[in-house]
Design a protein around this nucleic acid. Structure first.
Lengths: 171, 171
DNA sequence: TTCAAATAATTTGTATTCCAAAGAAATATA
DNA sequence: TATATTTCTTTGGAATACAAATTATTTGAA
């Protein structure tokens, strides 16, 4: 007979393992691309949403704009992104990927997401439904239903210590 | 009819949500205790294993000893830990919690682990078994079976970029 | 129209985390 | 004893992160 306590402990242990693999994958990518976690995180968001404003990027990353400026400096230094003053509103700076940046993003593997996708796809629908249900339940337990999912391989442990200070919308 | 692709995407989204809640909880604790993530992580390990050597602590945290020295400096500055030269081997420094440190650790809530435990415990065994199976499957997919689970609220995204350099055992 | 307020990005200053490399002290081994 | 190893610390450098101040621009109100 398996006790409740033991099962709860097992569940938590396995969740930890999942997280750890994901983080390790992201480290590997860091070594391969030469970019740090936040830099990679930023460039992925830019790839998704270019052209994007500095403030919008900061919001998406849950970081202070000043922090993002530094990250952008480095990405620009690597020739991966460009900054352009908007003609419509010259206070605004629009960030885009260079060709080099696009290639890097395209090449940088999908990390643990890839591992997961590859592992999940071949499973029968029935089993997938199973897994989906369980995760949904975990999310409910954590009261996380309303939180928008973010990128995985982001250094979320480095999230800012205080609440975000930019709450507006894009555009 | 629900497509495979959609279910896979949902699963990954929900994993992200779980991940994020845990990190947010840890941020909250940071604000409450006034300690940063690594500091809290360190002090928790010290609480578990005191007295612990600097090298052992570094190993447990997967950090470079030099990094741990800095963290210890700050914890010592806050009056939370003590450093004592070992009498047996005077190269060794043994770290222990002060009373203040013990109180802090005791008070600092168990974060997302607590949320999970509280949410899981009341579920029927049957359901727990379900969840446990699914997570085990995810772990298998990620090939993470052999990885020892680590603390949750640790800034694992900040793991060292290179392989660990201390491989010995405690004691 | 003019001038104050708000907005957007940046700069400056400070703290922290992280590592590598080099150093000092103690211990172990040849 | 001489050499190597272990243990911790120091030094130096890069990146992340925020707050506060700054600059340029736009918006809005008098």
């Amino acid at each position: 007979m398996i006790g409740t306590a033991k099962m709860v402990a097992d569940i938590i242990d396995n969740l930890r393992r999942v997280f750890q693999v994901i983080n390790e994958q992201s480290k590997k990518i860091e070594r391969e691309t030469g970019l740090t976690g936040p830099q990679l995180w930023a460039i992925k968001i830019i790839a998704e949403s270019a052209p994007i404003k500095v403030s919008a990027l900061a919001r998406r990353m849950y970081l202070h704009p000043a922090t993002v400026v530094g990250i952008l400096d480095r990405l620009e230094g690597h020739g991966l992104v460009t900054r352009t003053r908007s003609l419509e509103d010259r206070r605004v700076v629009e960030i885009e990927l260079t060709d080099k940046g696009k290639i890097l993003v395209a090449q940088s593997p999908v990390v643990a997401q890839g591992l997961l996708v590859k592992g999940l796809e071949p499973l029968p629908e029935e089993k997938l439904l199973h897994i989906a249900e369980v995760l949904e339940q975990l999310v409910m337990i954590l009261g996380a239903q309303e939180i928008a999912p973010k990128l995985f391989f982001s250094p979320e442990a480095n999230l800012p210590r205080t609440e975000g200070c930019y709450n507006g919308e894009d555009t």
